[in-house]
Amino acid sequence: MINAVRGLLTLFAVSILVFSLARLTGDPIDVLAPVDISREDEAALRERWGLNGSIWEQYVSFVGNASQGDFGPSFKYPTETAASVIAERLPASISLGIVATVLTLVIGVPLGILSAVKRGSWLDRIAKGLALFGQSVPEFWLAIMLIWFVAVRWNVVPTSGISGWQSYILPSIVISVFGIAALLRLFRSAMLETLGSEYVKLARLKGLSEFKVVWKHALKPASIAPLTFFGGIAVRMLTGATVVEIVFAWPGVGYLAYEAANARDFPVVQALALFTAAVIIIMNLLIDITYAYVDPRVRLGQKAIA
């Protein structure tokens, strides 16, 4: 509950920040309207873009409308609203995001667990190498190198845009590389810690199968620490997605942000920044809830040792 209020406050702060940034250039009319615009047209445009009155009035009306999902008309596409422009692009980003997240979880978590269980083995060595690489490689460069080899030289998958499921392969790999690396590391160290703990020893002494010991008794407490970091990983994946979408000309919101910022389409940029911040905040709330579910100490109202 307190977290939800804090989240709202954060969103409010982001709205002020974004709004004032968008006004840094000065009057959007000067930037976007033709130089020889007539006085009447200018007034009409001001009315339409919500640029009437003082900057405070503008902000109040912006927040008022935004809370109802209305971010005003897009400057670049005059027939559409900022919200509808974003809604159009959203499915492409969400589907890519889901694929990348699934890839991250499916590869990162088991690999992290296995490399802890088989500590020092060749699998562990490979996993550690992969983690190091994933944390260090610049996404945009990896994307270009993959396009060069996989898409152009071997001609296996398309280079950009969406045309069938093959298009998802390269972008989702590039986006998930960092997440895989981070989750792998976190799970590895957390599992190493719990595998050495007293209750795991007890579980072994009780004669439970190794499978049960690892996947039931050790895994649940071990997944708490990585969970708290998942918010950070997700943020990094979201921002990484912006860059990756630009490289692959992926028609999602990340690419839209790039186009809108370059075209100075401020309503769209404002809406996107608020939207992204809201997604991150909601995700953090969800993580808090999951945290409480996984760790009984939190669920029972005791303070967790952070």
């Binding site: 804090r6 840094l24 943020v235 992204t276």
Partner: peptide, 23 residues
């Protein structure tokens, strides 16, 4: 702590794009 949370949940690539588009 609130400041930290806020700044960690800022979409900074987006903000960079906005700032650069502006100035």
């Amino acid at each position: 702590s609130w400041l930290i949370d806020t700044f960690l949940s800022l979409p900074h690539v987006l903000l960079a794009l906005v700032i650069v588009a502006a100035i």
